[in-house]
Simulated assay, not measured.
Amino acid sequence: LVADLAAAAAPPTDTTLGNGFLDTFRTAGEEARRALVAERFAALAAAVLRTGADRIDPATGLGELGLDSLLAMELRARIHAELGVALPVVALLSGTPAGELAGRLHDGLTALASAEDPAGAADAVPLHSDERQYPLTQNQKALWFLKHLNPDGYAYNIGGAVEVNVALEPDLMFEAVRRLIARHPALRTNFLLEDGQAVQRVSEDARTDLALFDVRGEDWDSIHATIVEEYRKPYDLAHDPLIRFRLFQRGPDRWIIMKAVHHIVS
């Protein structure tokens, strides 16, 4: 979704400009490279912000000039289309000074320039050997970004509730959920920033969010309101277990089972 929005926001780009820039960058000295990148970044940012390049202050974040989420996606798309380097949207929106953003762009271009096949390097898939931490998929990046736009939202909480009339042992149900979480790494995953990049990190511990509610004697409207409240609780993607399980006891053999999970791990 984020990539689609960014692509739609960005105007058609002359790809020969990016190729020519990289050729110039490759043959320039280090000081000249940094000056080239700073100038080009300022020009691209100014075009997106509909202002002059002289207003892009290296010591100030682009938010001071009105950069919002949609403009950040447009700027990211323009930079990637023209220069082949992707700057994280979160870095553009986080108040990072323009000079530091240009420095990241310089580092990305340096990696491209040093590759034997620059075009192939831009599309290369990095290898990751750490089994506890991974980059986000494109869909996860979109969900992560949308969550940070609306931290208290619940649009991507998914799950449901079902009422059963059966003898049920809460401790056994909760133990089954713990074993399920221990078995599936996705259910032990959190999403956080590291070096300006969103990553997913798998915990070795099967942390759980389990609760038992005794609602015997309560009317349905009250029970329903409690279920909805538990279902809609926002997730902190960096710290919370991203699956929650609830049992509501309505009678001796009458239960409501509720499960909710954030879509980013579903």
Rank of each mutant, 00 (worst) to 15 (best):
P126T: 04
L105W: 05
P126L: 01
G251A: 11
D23F: 08
T24I: 10
P58Y: 06
A238C: 07
L67H: 02
A111E: 14
L49M: 07
L149C: 09
D240C: 05
E194T: 09
G52A: 02
A28K: 08
R132W: 03
Y231N: 13
A42G: 01
V215C: 10
D68T: 12
I181M: 02
V164T: 06
L212V: 01
A142C: 06
A225N: 04
L36M: 14
T24V: 12
I227Q: 15
L149Y: 07
D195F: 07
P58E: 04
G108H: 03
L149Q: 15
L44H: 15
G108F: 00
D253S: 10
E230H: 15
A3L: 09
F191M: 05
L87E: 03
E218T: 10
L242C: 06
L192M: 08
D130H: 06
D209I: 01
T110H: 07
Y235W: 13
V199G: 03
A225T: 09
K141N: 11
P11T: 13
S129T: 12
L70P: 11
G20N: 15
F21C: 14
N139Q: 12
D117C: 04
G63S: 07
N19Q: 14
L112C: 00
G153Q: 11
S266K: 10
R26G: 02
D152Y: 13
A206H: 05
L237G: 00
I79H: 02
L187S: 02
F21D: 05
Q133N: 01
T208S: 11
R179H: 14
A7H: 14
R216F: 00
E74K: 15
L149A: 12
E169M: 01
A10P: 04
V125T: 08
D221W: 09
L105R: 00
D54C: 09
S203H: 13
A53W: 05
R132C: 04
H224S: 13
L180C: 07
W255M: 06
P170Y: 03
R179V: 02
A115R: 11
N190Q: 13
N139I: 12
A124W: 07
I223Y: 05
T51D: 07
E82P: 01
R183K: 14
V89I: 15
D171P: 03
R34S: 11
I264H: 02
D14T: 08
D236K: 11
G20R: 15
P126I: 05
A3K: 10
V202G: 04
I243Y: 02
M73D: 10
E82A: 08
I223M: 00
R254Q: 13
F25H: 02
A186K: 02
E229F: 14
R104L: 09
A91L: 12
G217A: 00
R178I: 09
A7S: 14
N19H: 09
V89S: 07
D123E: 14
E31G: 10
G153H: 10
Q200P: 01
E116G: 15
V202A: 02
L187P: 00
E175R: 08
A47Y: 03
I264T: 03
L212P: 00
S114D: 14
A91M: 15
H80V: 08
E131N: 05
R178S: 00
D107V: 10
R183Q: 08
